[in-house]
Design a binder for these strands. Structure first.
Lengths: 131, 131
DNA sequence: GCTTGACCTGGTGTGCGCTCCAGGCGACAG
DNA sequence: CTGTCGCCTGGAGCGCACACCAGGTCAAGC
């Protein structure tokens, strides 16, 4: 039969069987087609969609956001009304996160510059854990 | 007496009283000095350090990482051996996160471009929630 | 002295995102 | 036919990062 069995799908996506089932229960993917015996078969389309979901999940979007994302993209007509605003909001959140990360990287760089040389060169270093 | 009381410190840092106490229990901050009566007083130095911790926390570093960060920075000598490697590792993790976020932003941009126009212009759009 | 409100400690509860488990079924090898 | 392995479902458990609560203490105002 065509498509991948759950084990192969897990290997292909990098998710666990439990996570694949969990995402399906939560409406992030599927429902995945079944064999006559009731076993899941993941086709190319499923795998591609799981790739998108995984990518967004890794970026920190929550299960709720992803469910909404999936739901809206599947509505008739696809993108009924609030899709683009929703996407723009998520995008803005991600940009915010990127910004916070960049600030944190600068903080670490500052510490690295302060401690990472043999002499303590002047830096923009402003605080220390001690005095 | 000098310093801020817990309510003022919470207001100044944007954290809750519970979170301030939690961070202290977990060794991320303090121990905060106390008044004779046993109430905490946060001085400027405490607040500055809380600012750093909050910044890194917002970037997604875990409590364990931050405890280690705090612990190592306080060791004698400060930065005993493994500080800079530790900082570089965290930094690399943050860069990875930034990258993942940027990939996710591109995915969203792709969907926005696909659904955000009246005509469906050609895009690099590759998948859809339906077929 | 008394009230009132902010703060104390220790412990329990919560939401998220999985993860694990038990008991049972499908499918293929021999 | 039988064994074995992978997959099924429903439900319980877990780690993280707090949030909440009870019962008591401190301190400023009247």
């Amino acid at each position: 039969m065509t498509g991948l069995d759950p084990g192969a799908a897990a290997a292909a996506t990098g998710l666990t069987l439990d996570t694949l089932r969990y995402y399906e229960r939560e409406g992030l993917i599927g429902p995945i087609k079944r064999t006559d015996g009731g076993r899941r078969r993941y086709d190319d389309h499923d795998l591609a969609w799981i790739g998108i979901i995984t990518c967004l999940r890794e970026a920190g979007l929550g299960i709720g956001d992803l469910r909404q994302f999936t739901t809206i993209l599947r509505a008739q007509p696809p993108g009924a009304g609030n899709l683009v605003p929703f996407l723009r909001e998520r995008r803005a959140e991600l940009e915010q996160r990127i910004h916070r990360l960049q600030v944190a990287v600068r903080v670490l760089d500052d510490k690295i510059a302060y401690y990472g040389v043999d002499e303590n060169l002047p830096t923009t270093h402003a605080w220390d854990a001690n005095d």
